[in-house]
Simulated assay, not measured.
Amino acid sequence: MLPPRGEGAAGDRAIQQALETAWPADLPTGDERQLLAAGRALLRADATGTGRERWPEVFPGSGRGLAPAFSTARFRVQAAVARRAGRPDRAVVHLVWAGTDRGDTYSDGRITDLYFTRTASPKGASSWVPQPRI
């Protein structure tokens, strides 16, 4: 059972458990951990502007004074899971988050899906690269 909207951080654990129950894990633990960290950071960069320089291919020209849509101080990821997205080299990070926008309106239960593709380097290592949002 999901907590009511507006429950605050106290409801985050229930949301996380509901996501994990509804969408069973299907990635190796290391990949899931890497994707979750990247997904959280990418969402934070998109919503608040903090950290956009880490992904110049996702945020080209982000240094041009673009005002962030959400307050950094009042932004949090409530829950997240990383799962395969059709093929072994594709994954989706499903995030539920809360934040206060520029109009000072707070809302929780916002949903964002971020897609990643696994790429291999010439040395045999691989990494997950975010895909452009459509």
Rank of each mutant, 00 (worst) to 15 (best):
F75S: 04
T21L: 14
A79C: 09
T112C: 02
L66S: 08
D108M: 01
W55L: 00
W128E: 03
P88R: 10
P56H: 02
T100K: 08
I15F: 01
R74N: 11
R44K: 14
R110S: 14
V77E: 07
L43W: 00
F70T: 00
G124K: 05
H94A: 10
E32C: 07
A37W: 06
T112W: 00
L114K: 00
R87D: 14
S126G: 13
L35K: 02
G61S: 06
R118E: 13
P132K: 09
Q78R: 15
S127Q: 13
Q78N: 14
D31S: 11
P56C: 04
R102N: 11
A67W: 05
Q17S: 15
F59K: 00
T21V: 10
A85H: 13
T48L: 06
E57K: 11
A9S: 15
G8W: 07
G39H: 00
T48C: 04
R83D: 04
G49W: 02
G86N: 08
G61P: 10
G51I: 09
A73M: 09
P24D: 05
E20D: 12
G51K: 03
L66P: 01
R40S: 12
W23S: 14
A18W: 14
G109H: 07
P24Y: 01
L66G: 12
T50N: 13
R90G: 06
R13V: 10
P122L: 07
Q78I: 10
G11K: 07
G11I: 07
P122S: 06
A98S: 11
A25V: 09
G51L: 05
G86P: 06
L114Q: 04
V77T: 13
T119I: 11
